[in-house]
Design a protein around this nucleic acid. Structure first.
Lengths: 280, 280
DNA sequence: AAGTGGTCTAGACCACCTG
DNA sequence: AGGTGGTCTAGACCACTTC
Protein backbone atom coordinates (compact mmCIF):
# COMPACT_ATOMS: atom_id res chain seq x y z
CA UNK A 1 0.00 0.00 0.00
CA UNK A 2 1.30 3.36 -0.97
CA UNK A 3 0.64 6.09 1.51
CA UNK A 4 -0.43 9.45 0.27
CA UNK A 5 2.74 11.22 -0.78
CA UNK A 6 1.60 14.58 0.59
CA UNK A 7 3.74 16.45 3.09
CA UNK A 8 3.64 14.18 6.11
CA UNK A 9 6.42 15.54 8.27
CA UNK A 10 7.69 12.42 9.96
CA UNK A 11 5.24 9.76 10.83
CA UNK A 12 7.10 9.29 14.07
CA UNK A 13 6.32 12.81 15.12
CA UNK A 14 2.65 12.31 14.50
CA UNK A 15 2.75 9.18 16.63
CA UNK A 16 4.61 11.01 19.37
CA UNK A 17 1.95 13.70 19.50
CA UNK A 18 -0.73 11.08 19.82
CA UNK A 19 1.16 9.35 22.59
CA UNK A 20 1.58 12.60 24.47
CA UNK A 21 -2.15 13.13 24.36
CA UNK A 22 -2.65 9.67 25.73
CA UNK A 23 -0.24 10.42 28.54
CA UNK A 24 -1.82 13.73 29.43
CA UNK A 25 -5.27 12.19 29.56
CA UNK A 26 -4.12 9.68 32.14
CA UNK A 27 -2.84 9.71 35.67
CA UNK A 28 0.71 8.72 36.57
CA UNK A 29 1.01 4.97 36.77
CA UNK A 30 -1.90 4.33 34.43
CA UNK A 31 -1.36 1.87 31.60
CA UNK A 32 -1.64 2.87 27.97
CA UNK A 33 -2.66 0.53 25.14
CA UNK A 34 -0.17 -2.07 23.98
CA UNK A 35 2.24 -1.52 21.15
CA UNK A 36 0.35 -3.73 18.75
CA UNK A 37 -2.95 -2.06 19.48
CA UNK A 38 -1.46 1.38 19.01
CA UNK A 39 0.12 0.29 15.74
CA UNK A 40 -3.23 -0.66 14.35
CA UNK A 41 -4.98 2.43 15.68
CA UNK A 42 -2.36 4.72 14.20
CA UNK A 43 -1.67 2.74 11.08
CA UNK A 44 2.05 2.40 11.58
CA UNK A 45 4.42 -0.49 11.88
CA UNK A 46 5.76 -1.60 15.20
CA UNK A 47 9.32 -0.30 14.78
CA UNK A 48 7.89 3.11 13.97
CA UNK A 49 5.64 3.01 16.97
CA UNK A 50 8.48 1.83 19.17
CA UNK A 51 10.73 4.59 17.92
CA UNK A 52 8.20 7.17 19.06
CA UNK A 53 7.80 5.43 22.38
CA UNK A 54 11.58 5.41 22.79
CA UNK A 55 11.54 9.16 22.74
CA UNK A 56 8.91 9.48 25.42
CA UNK A 57 10.70 6.91 27.53
CA UNK A 58 13.93 8.85 27.19
CA UNK A 59 12.10 12.03 28.13
CA UNK A 60 10.75 10.31 31.20
CA UNK A 61 7.06 10.42 30.34
CA UNK A 62 6.53 6.72 29.77
CA UNK A 63 7.91 3.57 31.30
CA UNK A 64 7.94 0.12 29.79
CA UNK A 65 7.68 -3.06 31.79
CA UNK A 66 8.58 -6.22 30.06
CA UNK A 67 5.75 -8.68 29.96
CA UNK A 68 3.31 -6.17 31.45
CA UNK A 69 2.83 -3.14 29.33
CA UNK A 70 3.53 0.55 29.10
CA UNK A 71 2.59 3.04 31.77
CA UNK A 72 2.54 6.76 32.35
CA UNK A 73 5.65 7.55 34.36
CA UNK A 74 5.14 8.12 38.03
CA UNK A 75 7.84 10.64 38.72
CA UNK A 76 7.51 13.58 36.43
CA UNK A 77 10.96 14.42 35.30
CA UNK A 78 10.29 18.12 35.57
CA UNK A 79 8.70 18.51 38.87
CA UNK A 80 7.74 21.57 40.78
CA UNK A 81 10.78 23.70 41.17
CA UNK A 82 10.24 26.25 43.75
CA UNK A 83 8.99 27.36 47.01
CA UNK A 84 6.46 25.93 49.35
CA UNK A 85 4.65 28.92 50.90
CA UNK A 86 6.70 30.28 53.75
CA UNK A 87 10.34 30.82 53.06
CA UNK A 88 12.19 29.71 50.01
CA UNK A 89 12.99 26.30 51.29
CA UNK A 90 14.85 24.29 48.73
CA UNK A 91 14.07 20.67 48.23
CA UNK A 92 16.15 18.89 50.78
CA UNK A 93 18.48 16.15 49.95
CA UNK A 94 16.99 13.02 51.32
CA UNK A 95 17.52 9.35 51.52
CA UNK A 96 20.35 7.28 52.82
CA UNK A 97 23.38 6.91 50.64
CA UNK A 98 25.27 3.67 50.43
CA UNK A 99 27.90 2.16 48.18
CA UNK A 100 28.47 -1.23 46.66
CA UNK A 101 31.90 -1.97 45.28
CA UNK A 102 31.68 -3.64 41.89
CA UNK A 103 35.33 -3.81 41.06
CA UNK A 104 38.48 -3.19 43.04
CA UNK A 105 41.79 -3.74 41.35
CA UNK A 106 45.25 -2.32 40.99
CA UNK A 107 46.14 -1.48 37.45
CA UNK A 108 48.55 0.69 35.57
CA UNK A 109 47.35 4.20 35.07
CA UNK A 110 47.57 4.27 31.32
CA UNK A 111 47.94 7.35 29.22
CA UNK A 112 44.68 9.10 29.86
CA UNK A 113 44.41 8.65 33.60
CA UNK A 114 48.13 9.09 34.10
CA UNK A 115 48.00 12.44 32.43
CA UNK A 116 45.15 13.56 34.60
CA UNK A 117 46.74 12.42 37.84
CA UNK A 118 50.11 13.71 36.69
CA UNK A 119 51.84 10.39 37.22
CA UNK A 120 53.58 7.98 34.89
CA UNK A 121 51.31 5.94 32.66
CA UNK A 122 53.10 2.92 34.09
CA UNK A 123 52.42 3.89 37.69
CA UNK A 124 49.94 1.78 39.55
CA UNK A 125 46.58 3.05 40.61
CA UNK A 126 43.73 1.70 42.67
CA UNK A 127 40.77 1.41 40.36
CA UNK A 128 37.43 1.18 42.04
CA UNK A 129 34.04 0.94 40.38
CA UNK A 130 31.23 1.36 42.79
CA UNK A 131 27.51 1.73 42.66
CA UNK A 132 26.02 4.56 44.66
CA UNK A 133 22.62 3.83 46.12
CA UNK A 134 19.99 6.00 47.72
CA UNK A 135 17.59 4.12 49.94
CA UNK A 136 18.76 0.96 48.27
CA UNK A 137 18.01 2.21 44.77
CA UNK A 138 20.86 2.66 42.31
CA UNK A 139 21.54 6.31 41.70
CA UNK A 140 24.94 6.47 40.11
CA UNK A 141 27.94 4.52 38.97
CA UNK A 142 31.31 5.87 39.99
CA UNK A 143 34.80 5.08 38.75
CA UNK A 144 37.63 6.15 41.04
CA UNK A 145 41.30 6.29 40.20
CA UNK A 146 43.76 6.87 43.01
CA UNK A 147 47.55 6.54 42.80
CA UNK A 148 48.30 3.28 44.58
CA UNK A 149 51.26 4.68 46.51
CA UNK A 150 48.95 7.11 48.25
CA UNK A 151 46.59 4.50 49.65
CA UNK A 152 48.55 1.41 50.71
CA UNK A 153 46.40 -1.29 52.19
CA UNK A 154 43.15 0.14 50.89
CA UNK A 155 40.46 -2.52 50.99
CA UNK A 156 37.14 -2.79 49.18
CA UNK A 157 35.25 -2.53 52.45
CA UNK A 158 36.81 0.88 52.98
CA UNK A 159 34.96 2.10 49.95
CA UNK A 160 31.58 1.01 51.23
CA UNK A 161 31.60 2.80 54.55
CA UNK A 162 32.07 6.38 55.53
CA UNK A 163 33.58 9.35 53.86
CA UNK A 164 36.45 8.65 51.51
CA UNK A 165 38.04 12.02 52.13
CA UNK A 166 38.03 11.43 55.87
CA UNK A 167 39.63 8.08 55.27
CA UNK A 168 42.31 9.72 53.18
CA UNK A 169 43.02 12.09 56.00
CA UNK A 170 42.83 9.77 58.98
CA UNK A 171 44.56 6.75 57.54
CA UNK A 172 46.77 8.06 54.81
CA UNK A 173 47.56 11.55 55.96
CA UNK A 174 46.16 13.23 52.88
CA UNK A 175 44.17 16.40 53.19
CA UNK A 176 42.09 17.17 50.18
CA UNK A 177 42.06 20.83 49.45
CA UNK A 178 40.74 21.61 46.04
CA UNK A 179 38.93 19.94 43.20
CA UNK A 180 38.11 20.84 39.65
CA UNK A 181 34.89 19.33 38.49
CA UNK A 182 33.01 19.30 35.27
CA UNK A 183 29.40 18.39 34.75
CA UNK A 184 27.90 17.57 31.42
CA UNK A 185 24.85 15.81 30.10
CA UNK A 186 25.18 12.43 28.51
CA UNK A 187 23.12 9.36 27.78
CA UNK A 188 23.60 5.94 29.31
CA UNK A 189 25.30 3.17 27.39
CA UNK A 190 24.47 -0.51 27.84
CA UNK A 191 26.71 -1.02 30.86
CA UNK A 192 25.63 2.11 32.68
CA UNK A 193 22.00 1.45 31.89
CA UNK A 194 22.20 -2.06 33.27
CA UNK A 195 24.02 -1.01 36.44
CA UNK A 196 21.82 1.88 37.44
CA UNK A 197 18.64 0.34 36.18
CA UNK A 198 17.46 2.68 33.45
CA UNK A 199 16.89 2.18 29.73
CA UNK A 200 19.76 2.60 27.33
CA UNK A 201 20.15 6.14 26.06
CA UNK A 202 18.47 7.65 29.10
CA UNK A 203 19.57 11.14 30.09
CA UNK A 204 22.28 11.19 32.71
CA UNK A 205 24.81 13.53 34.24
CA UNK A 206 28.48 12.87 33.73
CA UNK A 207 30.73 14.17 36.49
CA UNK A 208 34.46 14.34 36.21
CA UNK A 209 36.51 15.48 39.13
CA UNK A 210 40.18 15.85 39.84
CA UNK A 211 40.91 16.31 43.51
CA UNK A 212 44.17 17.60 44.91
CA UNK A 213 45.60 17.60 48.41
CA UNK A 214 46.99 20.59 50.24
CA UNK A 215 50.29 20.28 48.40
CA UNK A 216 48.53 20.49 45.07
CA UNK A 217 49.18 16.87 44.25
CA UNK A 218 46.30 15.05 42.53
CA UNK A 219 44.92 12.34 44.76
CA UNK A 220 41.87 11.13 42.92
CA UNK A 221 40.34 11.22 39.53
CA UNK A 222 36.67 10.37 39.55
CA UNK A 223 34.35 9.73 36.66
CA UNK A 224 30.73 9.14 37.53
CA UNK A 225 27.38 8.86 35.84
CA UNK A 226 24.21 9.87 37.65
CA UNK A 227 20.81 8.81 36.44
CA UNK A 228 18.90 11.77 35.13
CA UNK A 229 15.42 10.72 36.10
CA UNK A 230 16.04 10.86 39.84
CA UNK A 231 18.93 13.24 40.24
CA UNK A 232 19.05 16.94 39.71
CA UNK A 233 21.16 19.79 40.84
CA UNK A 234 19.35 22.50 42.70
CA UNK A 235 20.98 25.70 43.77
CA UNK A 236 20.00 28.97 45.29
CA UNK A 237 21.79 31.87 43.78
CA UNK A 238 22.22 35.23 45.36
CA UNK A 239 22.23 37.75 42.59
CA UNK A 240 23.63 41.17 42.79
CA UNK A 241 23.19 43.44 39.87
CA UNK A 242 25.58 46.27 40.51
CA UNK A 243 23.85 48.67 42.88
CA UNK A 244 25.84 51.47 41.36
CA UNK A 245 25.06 51.76 37.67
CA UNK A 246 28.25 53.67 37.06
CA UNK A 247 30.47 51.60 39.29
CA UNK A 248 32.36 48.53 38.35
CA UNK A 249 30.12 46.18 36.47
CA UNK A 250 28.63 43.41 38.52
CA UNK A 251 28.83 41.04 35.62
CA UNK A 252 30.39 37.76 36.34
CA UNK A 253 29.00 37.69 39.83
CA UNK A 254 26.17 35.35 39.08
CA UNK A 255 27.59 31.94 39.67
CA UNK A 256 25.52 29.18 38.23
CA UNK A 257 23.76 31.18 35.63
CA UNK A 258 24.87 30.59 32.08
CA UNK A 259 26.83 33.63 31.02
CA UNK A 260 24.63 34.42 28.10
CA UNK A 261 21.81 35.15 30.48
CA UNK A 262 23.62 38.08 31.88
CA UNK A 263 25.57 39.91 29.30
CA UNK A 264 26.84 39.96 25.82
CA UNK A 265 30.29 39.04 26.98
CA UNK A 266 31.71 35.76 27.99
CA UNK A 267 33.52 36.71 31.14
CA UNK A 268 32.46 34.31 33.79
CA UNK A 269 34.05 33.66 37.10
CA UNK A 270 35.85 30.39 37.11
CA UNK A 271 34.75 30.41 40.68
CA UNK A 272 31.66 28.34 40.34
CA UNK A 273 29.26 27.23 37.69
CA UNK A 274 28.65 28.41 34.22
CA UNK A 275 31.50 27.91 31.88
CA UNK A 276 31.62 27.34 28.20
CA UNK A 277 33.88 24.98 26.39
CA UNK A 278 34.57 26.32 22.96
CA UNK A 279 34.64 23.66 20.34
CA UNK A 280 38.25 22.85 19.49
CA UNK B 1 18.50 -18.10 7.82
CA UNK B 2 18.47 -19.00 11.47
CA UNK B 3 21.28 -17.56 13.49
CA UNK B 4 23.02 -19.72 16.01
CA UNK B 5 20.87 -19.55 19.11
CA UNK B 6 23.85 -19.47 21.47
CA UNK B 7 24.15 -16.73 24.06
CA UNK B 8 24.73 -13.70 21.91
CA UNK B 9 24.19 -10.85 24.32
CA UNK B 10 22.68 -8.25 22.06
CA UNK B 11 23.86 -8.08 18.55
CA UNK B 12 23.69 -4.33 18.80
CA UNK B 13 26.29 -4.33 21.52
CA UNK B 14 28.68 -6.35 19.44
CA UNK B 15 28.22 -3.89 16.59
CA UNK B 16 28.79 -0.98 18.94
CA UNK B 17 32.10 -2.44 20.11
CA UNK B 18 33.20 -2.87 16.54
CA UNK B 19 32.26 0.69 15.73
CA UNK B 20 34.18 1.99 18.70
CA UNK B 21 37.27 0.20 17.47
CA UNK B 22 36.80 1.81 14.10
CA UNK B 23 36.52 5.20 15.73
CA UNK B 24 39.58 4.74 17.90
CA UNK B 25 41.66 3.66 14.94
CA UNK B 26 40.88 6.88 13.12
CA UNK B 27 41.50 10.55 13.56
CA UNK B 28 38.72 13.03 14.26
CA UNK B 29 36.97 13.97 11.05
CA UNK B 30 37.88 10.76 9.25
CA UNK B 31 35.13 8.91 7.47
CA UNK B 32 34.11 5.39 8.42
CA UNK B 33 32.62 2.85 6.04
CA UNK B 34 29.05 3.30 4.91
CA UNK B 35 26.11 1.72 6.66
CA UNK B 36 25.51 -0.85 3.95
CA UNK B 37 29.14 -1.89 3.88
CA UNK B 38 29.24 -2.25 7.63
CA UNK B 39 26.05 -4.29 7.57
CA UNK B 40 27.62 -6.80 5.26
CA UNK B 41 30.91 -6.89 7.14
CA UNK B 42 29.19 -7.49 10.43
CA UNK B 43 26.38 -9.63 9.17
CA UNK B 44 23.55 -7.53 10.54
CA UNK B 45 20.59 -5.76 9.04
CA UNK B 46 20.60 -2.07 8.51
CA UNK B 47 18.18 -1.13 11.30
CA UNK B 48 20.40 -3.04 13.72
CA UNK B 49 23.49 -1.29 12.44
CA UNK B 50 21.77 2.06 12.59
CA UNK B 51 20.61 1.45 16.11
CA UNK B 52 24.20 0.94 17.18
CA UNK B 53 25.30 4.02 15.29
CA UNK B 54 22.53 6.00 16.98
CA UNK B 55 24.14 5.30 20.29
CA UNK B 56 27.56 6.51 19.24
CA UNK B 57 26.04 9.59 17.68
CA UNK B 58 24.18 10.32 20.90
CA UNK B 59 27.41 9.84 22.82
CA UNK B 60 29.12 12.28 20.53
CA UNK B 61 31.66 9.94 18.99
CA UNK B 62 30.21 9.83 15.49
CA UNK B 63 28.49 12.33 13.26
CA UNK B 64 26.30 11.60 10.27
CA UNK B 65 26.05 13.78 7.22
CA UNK B 66 23.19 13.16 4.94
CA UNK B 67 24.29 12.28 1.47
CA UNK B 68 27.94 12.12 2.49
CA UNK B 69 28.67 9.53 5.06
CA UNK B 70 29.60 8.99 8.67
CA UNK B 71 32.61 10.55 10.32
CA UNK B 72 34.52 10.41 13.55
CA UNK B 73 33.37 13.40 15.59
CA UNK B 74 35.70 16.35 15.67
CA UNK B 75 34.94 17.76 19.08
CA UNK B 76 35.53 15.15 21.70
CA UNK B 77 32.67 15.39 24.06
CA UNK B 78 34.84 14.69 27.05
CA UNK B 79 37.78 16.88 26.63
CA UNK B 80 40.73 17.42 28.85
CA UNK B 81 39.46 18.47 32.20
CA UNK B 82 42.25 19.80 34.24
CA UNK B 83 45.17 21.99 34.65
CA UNK B 84 47.69 23.23 32.21
CA UNK B 85 51.05 23.13 34.01
CA UNK B 86 51.45 26.27 36.07
CA UNK B 87 48.48 27.24 38.14
CA UNK B 88 45.13 25.59 38.11
CA UNK B 89 43.68 27.77 35.47
CA UNK B 90 40.21 26.72 34.59
CA UNK B 91 39.07 26.74 31.02
CA UNK B 92 37.78 30.21 30.47
CA UNK B 93 34.45 30.99 29.13
CA UNK B 94 34.93 32.22 25.64
CA UNK B 95 33.09 33.32 22.61
CA UNK B 96 30.64 36.09 22.07
CA UNK B 97 27.12 35.52 23.19
CA UNK B 98 24.19 36.81 21.23
CA UNK B 99 20.46 36.28 21.19
CA UNK B 100 17.87 35.90 18.51
CA UNK B 101 14.26 36.30 19.52
CA UNK B 102 12.10 33.59 17.99
CA UNK B 103 8.83 34.46 19.59
CA UNK B 104 7.61 37.41 21.58
CA UNK B 105 4.01 37.46 22.69
CA UNK B 106 1.79 38.31 25.59
CA UNK B 107 -0.25 35.39 26.80
CA UNK B 108 -2.09 34.31 29.89
CA UNK B 109 0.11 32.61 32.41
CA UNK B 110 -1.82 29.39 32.65
CA UNK B 111 -1.81 27.03 35.57
CA UNK B 112 1.76 25.85 35.56
CA UNK B 113 3.55 29.13 34.97
CA UNK B 114 1.10 31.05 37.11
CA UNK B 115 1.84 28.80 40.03
CA UNK B 116 5.54 29.27 39.62
CA UNK B 117 5.37 33.02 39.32
CA UNK B 118 2.77 33.18 42.09
CA UNK B 119 0.29 35.08 39.96
CA UNK B 120 -3.18 34.30 38.70
CA UNK B 121 -3.36 31.80 35.86
CA UNK B 122 -5.34 34.46 34.04
CA UNK B 123 -2.69 37.13 34.51
CA UNK B 124 -0.79 38.15 31.44
CA UNK B 125 2.85 37.39 30.96
CA UNK B 126 5.43 38.28 28.39
CA UNK B 127 6.50 35.05 26.77
CA UNK B 128 9.79 35.14 24.95
CA UNK B 129 11.50 32.30 23.16
CA UNK B 130 15.00 33.12 22.15
CA UNK B 131 17.95 31.35 20.71
CA UNK B 132 21.25 31.88 22.45
CA UNK B 133 24.26 31.86 20.17
CA UNK B 134 27.96 31.71 20.83
CA UNK B 135 30.08 33.04 18.02
CA UNK B 136 27.05 32.73 15.82
CA UNK B 137 26.50 29.06 16.59
CA UNK B 138 23.31 28.01 18.36
CA UNK B 139 24.04 26.98 21.93
CA UNK B 140 20.74 27.00 23.71
CA UNK B 141 17.06 27.71 23.43
CA UNK B 142 15.51 29.74 26.20
CA UNK B 143 11.90 30.32 27.19
CA UNK B 144 11.26 33.30 29.43
CA UNK B 145 8.09 34.10 31.31
CA UNK B 146 7.78 37.49 32.94
CA UNK B 147 4.61 38.97 34.45
CA UNK B 148 3.49 41.56 31.92
CA UNK B 149 2.73 44.20 34.53
CA UNK B 150 6.37 44.24 35.54
CA UNK B 151 7.75 45.02 32.11
CA UNK B 152 5.42 47.44 30.30
CA UNK B 153 6.64 48.40 26.88
CA UNK B 154 9.13 45.59 26.61
CA UNK B 155 10.12 45.09 23.00
CA UNK B 156 11.72 42.14 21.21
CA UNK B 157 14.83 44.16 20.50
CA UNK B 158 15.33 44.57 24.23
CA UNK B 159 15.85 40.85 24.47
CA UNK B 160 18.58 40.79 21.90
CA UNK B 161 20.90 43.32 23.43
CA UNK B 162 22.53 43.62 26.78
CA UNK B 163 21.81 42.18 30.16
CA UNK B 164 18.20 41.48 30.93
CA UNK B 165 18.69 41.99 34.65
CA UNK B 166 20.21 45.39 34.07
CA UNK B 167 17.28 46.25 31.88
CA UNK B 168 14.90 45.20 34.63
CA UNK B 169 16.70 47.49 37.02
CA UNK B 170 17.30 50.51 34.83
CA UNK B 171 14.01 50.62 33.00
CA UNK B 172 11.56 48.89 35.26
CA UNK B 173 12.96 49.48 38.68
CA UNK B 174 13.28 45.82 39.55
CA UNK B 175 16.32 44.59 41.39
CA UNK B 176 16.83 40.88 41.12
CA UNK B 177 18.04 39.44 44.35
CA UNK B 178 17.77 35.71 44.46
CA UNK B 179 17.12 32.81 42.18
CA UNK B 180 16.46 29.15 42.61
CA UNK B 181 17.76 27.10 39.78
CA UNK B 182 17.68 23.45 38.91
CA UNK B 183 19.83 21.67 36.40
CA UNK B 184 19.07 18.28 35.03
CA UNK B 185 20.06 16.21 32.06
CA UNK B 186 17.62 15.65 29.28
CA UNK B 187 17.54 14.77 25.62
CA UNK B 188 16.43 17.02 22.81
CA UNK B 189 13.03 16.62 21.22
CA UNK B 190 12.30 17.42 17.58
CA UNK B 191 11.79 21.14 18.13
CA UNK B 192 14.82 21.65 20.32
CA UNK B 193 16.97 19.55 18.03
CA UNK B 194 15.97 21.58 15.03
CA UNK B 195 16.52 24.91 16.74
CA UNK B 196 19.93 24.26 18.21
CA UNK B 197 21.11 22.09 15.37
CA UNK B 198 21.72 18.70 16.92
CA UNK B 199 20.18 15.28 16.28
CA UNK B 200 17.01 14.33 18.07
CA UNK B 201 17.62 12.65 21.42
CA UNK B 202 21.00 14.29 21.88
CA UNK B 203 22.12 14.91 25.45
CA UNK B 204 21.30 18.36 26.72
CA UNK B 205 21.07 20.30 29.96
CA UNK B 206 17.71 21.54 31.13
CA UNK B 207 17.84 24.66 33.29
CA UNK B 208 14.88 25.96 35.21
CA UNK B 209 15.17 29.15 37.14
CA UNK B 210 12.84 31.25 39.21
CA UNK B 211 14.21 34.69 39.91
CA UNK B 212 12.90 37.05 42.57
CA UNK B 213 13.47 40.71 43.19
CA UNK B 214 14.52 42.27 46.47
CA UNK B 215 10.97 42.12 47.78
CA UNK B 216 10.83 38.40 47.19
CA UNK B 217 8.40 38.73 44.30
CA UNK B 218 9.04 36.39 41.37
CA UNK B 219 10.02 38.35 38.29
CA UNK B 220 10.99 35.70 35.81
CA UNK B 221 10.59 32.04 35.21
CA UNK B 222 13.09 30.68 32.73
CA UNK B 223 13.25 27.30 31.11
CA UNK B 224 16.19 26.64 28.86
CA UNK B 225 17.85 23.79 27.04
CA UNK B 226 21.59 23.82 26.39
CA UNK B 227 23.17 21.52 23.88
CA UNK B 228 25.31 18.94 25.58
CA UNK B 229 28.00 18.54 22.98
CA UNK B 230 29.34 22.06 23.33
CA UNK B 231 28.32 23.14 26.79
CA UNK B 232 29.56 21.96 30.13
CA UNK B 233 29.68 23.26 33.63
CA UNK B 234 33.11 23.55 35.16
CA UNK B 235 33.68 24.48 38.74
CA UNK B 236 36.54 24.71 41.15
CA UNK B 237 35.67 23.49 44.58
CA UNK B 238 37.50 24.34 47.73
CA UNK B 239 37.26 21.35 49.98
CA UNK B 240 37.65 21.37 53.66
CA UNK B 241 37.57 18.08 55.45
CA UNK B 242 37.15 18.97 59.10
CA UNK B 243 40.59 19.76 60.46
CA UNK B 244 39.44 18.58 63.86
CA UNK B 245 38.44 14.93 63.71
CA UNK B 246 36.46 15.21 66.90
CA UNK B 247 34.92 18.55 66.19
CA UNK B 248 31.72 19.20 64.40
CA UNK B 249 31.65 17.22 61.20
CA UNK B 250 32.64 19.11 58.13
CA UNK B 251 30.18 17.17 56.08
CA UNK B 252 27.94 19.13 53.89
CA UNK B 253 30.59 21.71 53.23
CA UNK B 254 31.50 20.45 49.84
CA UNK B 255 29.29 22.30 47.47
CA UNK B 256 29.03 20.79 44.08
CA UNK B 257 30.03 17.31 45.04
CA UNK B 258 27.25 14.77 45.05
CA UNK B 259 26.50 13.99 48.66
CA UNK B 260 27.16 10.31 48.36
CA UNK B 261 30.78 11.06 47.70
CA UNK B 262 31.22 12.38 51.15
CA UNK B 263 29.28 10.48 53.69
CA UNK B 264 26.73 7.86 54.35
CA UNK B 265 24.17 10.50 55.16
CA UNK B 266 22.12 12.65 52.94
CA UNK B 267 22.53 15.98 54.63
CA UNK B 268 23.57 18.37 51.99
CA UNK B 269 23.58 22.10 52.14
CA UNK B 270 20.81 23.55 50.11
CA UNK B 271 23.32 26.27 49.67
CA UNK B 272 24.77 25.15 46.42
CA UNK B 273 24.94 22.12 44.25
CA UNK B 274 24.24 18.53 44.92
CA UNK B 275 20.69 17.81 45.76
CA UNK B 276 18.57 14.76 45.35
CA UNK B 277 14.99 14.66 44.33
CA UNK B 278 13.36 11.66 45.90
CA UNK B 279 10.89 9.97 43.65
CA UNK B 280 7.39 10.89 44.78
C1' DA C 1 -1.87 -20.28 26.74
C1' DA C 2 -2.08 -15.74 25.60
C1' DG C 3 -0.53 -11.23 25.88
C1' DT C 4 3.28 -8.07 26.52
C1' DG C 5 7.63 -5.77 25.37
C1' DG C 6 12.67 -6.78 23.15
C1' DT C 7 15.17 -7.80 19.17
C1' DC C 8 16.19 -8.63 14.47
C1' DT C 9 15.56 -9.24 9.43
C1' DA C 10 15.08 -8.16 4.36
C1' DG C 11 13.64 -5.05 1.59
C1' DA C 12 11.60 -0.76 -0.03
C1' DC C 13 11.35 4.20 -1.09
C1' DC C 14 12.88 8.85 -0.27
C1' DA C 15 16.12 12.98 0.06
C1' DC C 16 20.58 14.48 -0.33
C1' DC C 17 25.24 14.85 -2.15
C1' DT C 18 28.90 13.85 -5.32
C1' DG C 19 30.80 12.35 -9.60
C1' DA D 1 23.73 7.99 -12.16
C1' DG D 2 25.07 6.06 -8.18
C1' DG D 3 26.29 6.44 -3.62
C1' DT D 4 24.90 8.00 1.10
C1' DG D 5 21.98 8.49 5.12
C1' DG D 6 16.62 8.83 6.67
C1' DT D 7 12.42 6.53 7.12
C1' DC D 8 9.12 2.90 7.12
C1' DT D 9 7.05 -1.75 6.51
C1' DA D 10 5.56 -6.62 7.52
C1' DG D 11 6.72 -10.25 9.75
C1' DA D 12 9.43 -13.29 12.69
C1' DC D 13 11.25 -15.17 17.04
C1' DC D 14 12.42 -14.56 21.87
C1' DA D 15 11.76 -13.54 26.98
C1' DC D 16 8.80 -12.23 30.40
C1' DT D 17 4.33 -11.88 32.90
C1' DT D 18 -0.18 -13.04 33.88
C1' DC D 19 -4.11 -16.02 34.00
Amino acid sequence: MVSEPGRSPLKRERVREHLMELVEARAPGDPIPSERVLCEQLGVSRPTLRSAVDELVATGLLVREHGRGMFVARAKITQELAPDRDGHRLPQASGTWASRVLEFTTVRAGARVGRRLRISPAAEIAYIARLRLVDGEPMAIEYLHVPAVLVPGLRPADMEAGDFYELLRDRHGLRVREAVQSIEPTVTNEEEARLIGVPVLSPALLFERLTCDDTGRPVEYVHSVYRGDRYRIVSRLTLDVAPDPAGRPARGHHPGIPPGDLAGRGEVPAQMLGDVQPAP
